[in-house]
Amino acid sequence: MSKKKLGLNTICSHIGEVPDTQFKGAVSPMFLSSSYEFLDVDVKRYPRYFNTPNQDYLTKKIAALEHSEAAMIFGSGMAAISTMFLAFLKQGDHLVVQNTLYGGTVNFIKEEFPKYGIDFTFTNGYQAEDFEAAIKDNTKLIHIETPSNPLLTVTDIKAIAALGKSKGIFTSIDNTFASPVNQKPLDLGIDMVMHSATKYFGGHSDICAGAVASSSEHIERIWNVGKNLGGSLSDMTVWMLERSMKTLGLRVKAQTKNAMKLAKWLDKHPKISKVYYPGLKSHPEHQLAKSQMKGFGAMLSFELTEDLNSQEFQKQLKLIKSSMSLAGVESTLLSPHLTSHALLTQEERDAIGISDQLIRFSVGIENTKDLKEDIHQAITALA
């Protein structure tokens, strides 16, 4: 049976399992060896080559979820995206990159690309015409993130993919916020999809990993760079990640449902000045999101009114955790200006609309009634 025809939860729970040929166990055995036979074997396995049994099989699950030919896993999301960039960009090349995206990616581009002689342009906006305007004769890659971190802007994936193909330029996307449960960019024409697997793939706030999915040809190109950079993942973590991904569909669907309820409630709250969530009809790209996403995701952001201190608000919360990361089964939130985008200057944050009042909210699987009460009591304590 074709993997594309299998249901989401079937892929999550069955594809990518390592067969237990000895004891027939229900879960994948863990192979912790760092040394494997090299004589008379089909695959010469080595952890840094991303091909130990647990690594090899887990990529099959990721590829099946993203409808790709192949995939790779890395030690972190930044290891995944940096390796992908360096596989497709060299000295003298140019990157066009979306202006609203994860601060770590922005910092990597600004800090490391000049050392490699790679040119780059951040777009003035996130519409297709903004990307086209930034293209140069030496542009080799266009990179987008949608929904974006932390303002949940939505970029037209089909339009960017078509633009890249018309110009002979590769395209890539950070699909972390949506996850393959809610969005499949390769089906819309994008060349490469990356994830911080720390987030929804892991889902329990106990794993650090990254992933890239693409064609076999592109993955081989990324592998050739990856084996030199050495950003591989320990097999213990690979095993934990495969276990966690069995419930990916269940978790993300429950979180997405909760996020929609919370976004509508926050949108009406007198102490919330603005809510950023693609599922709201008031979101400027709501219709676009509806056309390219199966669900609107479990991430949202909101701005507190000016009379409330954002840090004091977080200290008053009893249930929702203040946390550096996101996408766990527990609800968490943070101030982007102090965390994900702290490496940007105040001027840079102001230019893309990241205010000190902005709160990024990762909605978990709790009862929404409890989450609403926690937010309400925190705001009341400051009033």
Rank of each mutant, 00 (worst) to 15 (best):
L241Q: 09
G249V: 13
P284S: 12
K261D: 04
A289H: 10
K290N: 11
A263W: 05
E285N: 15
T247C: 03
P284Y: 08
A254K: 15
K268Q: 15
K268P: 01
S291D: 15
D267T: 05
G297P: 10
M245H: 03
W265K: 01
K281V: 09
M240P: 00
M245E: 04
A263V: 10
E242G: 15
Q292E: 15
S282F: 02
M260Q: 09
Y276C: 05
K294V: 05
K294G: 11
A263T: 09
Y276L: 08
S282V: 04
K257F: 08
V275H: 03
G279I: 07
A289K: 07
P278K: 11
V238M: 10
A254R: 14
Q287A: 14
P284E: 09
S291Y: 04
K271Q: 14
R251K: 14
L250I: 09
G295P: 05
K271M: 15
R243K: 12
A289F: 07
W265M: 04
D267Y: 10
V275N: 05
K257P: 00
K294N: 15
K246C: 13
W265L: 01
K271N: 13
S291N: 10
S244L: 01
P284F: 08
E242H: 11
G295M: 10
G295I: 03
H269F: 11
M260W: 06
K281L: 12
K281R: 11
F296Q: 08
A259G: 09
H286W: 10
Q287F: 11
K264W: 01
S291C: 02
G249N: 09
M293L: 15
K246M: 13
P284K: 09
H269M: 10
A289M: 10
Y277V: 08
R243G: 04
V275F: 06
K274D: 06
K294E: 15
M245F: 01
V252C: 07
S244F: 04
K274G: 03
K264F: 09
K268V: 07
F296P: 06
K246I: 00
K264A: 10
L266E: 00
R251S: 06
V275T: 13
Y277T: 07
K281H: 09
S282E: 15
A289S: 14
L266N: 00
